[in-house]
Design a protein around this nucleic acid. Structure first.
Lengths: 303, 303
DNA sequence: GAGGTTCATAGCCCCAGGCTATCGACTCCA
DNA sequence: TGGAGTCGATAGCCTGGGGCTATGAACCTC
């Protein structure tokens, strides 16, 4: 890309087009809302820098030269493009229109999006959301890089210096096979029950794994060697007797439809994660994102 | 076409592109050869008029917003177009390149172009000539309108206020069937020989017809009722005994190859036409056209 | 030849956009 | 922990480009 300052002005092009249209400097000046000398000067200057005579003129008439005609055509198209650019930018200026690039973690995405997507469409009809599902670390990196405008993550993870709006508390549940000793117990569960148990957790990198793992190691539970790649497979494996696990409330309704599983809440203070929308401080979308977060909160799936 | 002054500058677009490339105001300013505050100000101003934040910036980093990225893409293409326009105009600025729109009358065109066209191509390799063949009246009108840059006509016709460069004198010849009384005479012809003769002339509107007609009516010749639409058909008709006619020297070599015709020059002062290149006074091509005329003169077919 | 065109020229004025200097925030390193 | 270095933003000044009015020169019309 050439860096040298451009030798002419958009306004000069406008003047040229106006003169070509009316074949009169006077009329063209009038239509451009400038004085005729100003317009003359600009045309002359353009002809000067291009070293081309665009119009052939004497006291009574103005004619387009062949070069002039060619340049006018190009100028016309160019001005239309400029117009389009302006318009596009202006319309995109409304932050609740255009495209918002949102990240979301995999332990939230499948349970939340079915409820939230239509709500957003309803609230912000001019807004298009592009979702990126990935683990927190990737999301925060993309956010930092500017590849994302915001992300939906758990505040308990390591997020760096961001602004956030809390969407919901998401308490954890103890999930066991129905015939498992822990599944037999009545009432709320306590973390201490996990002591010595075989616990199945998610793969590395999931923030939910980190939280669950913290709980388990405090309770001296025993993590199984193999790990699940997603909550559906995790649930599946528990159902087939692999051990016990934790599930966030958000996932419970969807995952635990089969009667072989027993789901018990934890006694207060229940372990939980805090789901929030986060974005860069100084993001130009701060205002819009607060609104979006509000809409998400309202649309949050109630258990 | 919108007449309102454009809200931004090509330079501002350049700045935006430069910042987007380097993701640094400082470096962008350097590459644009301006101070960083000047560049900052221009960017801020552009963001102001568009009511859009293009870059997200703090003290250590600069990020493109989604809107910004979109605008930068458009701006890039636009700047390329501007570059192309400049280049096209500059190259067209060399009057001996690009396209020259030339008119030529029908009684010249078929005899001259075969010789002149290659010569022009040789002399001015960057020049493309677009020929328009028509009668003088049409050509002068087009010249006046600006549809033609120059025309090759006979100066004896009514041409209006133009500048010209004479290319050649084109004397007239008396053409008769070989067995015609006038074809039997020896030596140069005299207009007075035409008295009472049946003369065949071209159709209305040809300047050559007007000249020949003037000669004939002065000599009290008798014009035949039917008229030829071109010099080839005219010659053809004379050969088949329709009467006598005049031909300009330029046409003689081509048209009179058959032995049934006798061609006699006129005694001094021989009637003639003066062929010249004409163009509008104040034409931007005046210089180039003189050169073109020179080349045409040199390439003129010698009898 | 007077009056009304047209575009060009002259001369004035003002602000847009340039500059330097500096601030304020942050990073990095000793 | 403090000092040096980097970043973009701000402040304040200066200049020239592009605006204006008034006028000139050439041409048309009546």
């Amino acid at each position: 890309m050439n860096l040298a300052p451009h030798p002419f002005t958009l306004r000069q092009l406008q003047y040229v087009v106006a003169v070509a249209d009316s074949l009169s400097f006077r009329k063209a000046a009038e239509r451009c809302h400038v004085s005729q000398p100003s317009l003359s000067a600009q045309i002359a200057q353009l002809e000067g820098v291009l070293e081309v005579q665009l119009f052939e003129r004497d006291q009574r008439r103005v004619l387009l030269t062949a070069v002039g005609a060619q340049l006018v055509e190009r100028a016309r198209r160019l001005l239309v493009d400029v117009e389009a650019l302006t318009e596009a930018a202006r319309r995109a200026g409304d932050p609740l229109s255009g495209t918002l690039r949102l990240g979301v973690i995999p332990t939230v995405s499948p349970y939340l999006l079915p409820a939230v997507t239509p709500a957003l469409r309803r609230h912000f009809p001019r807004l298009t959301v592009r979702w990126l599902e990935d683990k927190t670390e990737v999301l925060t990196r993309e956010l930092e890089r500017g590849g994302l405008d915001a992300a939906l993550v758990a505040l308990e993870a390591d997020l760096g210096d961001v602004e956030s709006a809390v969407l919901a508390e998401d308490p954890f549940f103890l999930v066991t096979p129905k015939d498992h000793p822990l599944g037999q117990k009545k009432g709320a569960a306590s973390p201490s029950e996990l002591r010595g148990q075989d616990v199945l957790l998610l793969d590395e990198g999931h923030c939910f794994r980190e939280q669950a793992l913290a709980l388990c190691s405090k309770a001296r539970a025993h993590e199984l060697e193999f790990r699940a790649t997603s909550l559906p497979t995790l649930t599946q494996m528990i159902a087939s007797g692999a051990g016990v696990t934790l599930l966030p409330a958000l996932a419970v309704a969807t995952e635990v439809k089969r009667s072989e599983l027993r789901v018990r809440p934890f006694a207060d203070p229940a372990p939980k994660r805090t789901l929030a929308l986060i974005w860069r401080k100084r993001s130009p979308f701060t205002g819009a994102l607060r609104e979006v977060a509000g809409a998400m909160k309202d649309a949050w799936p109630r258990k």
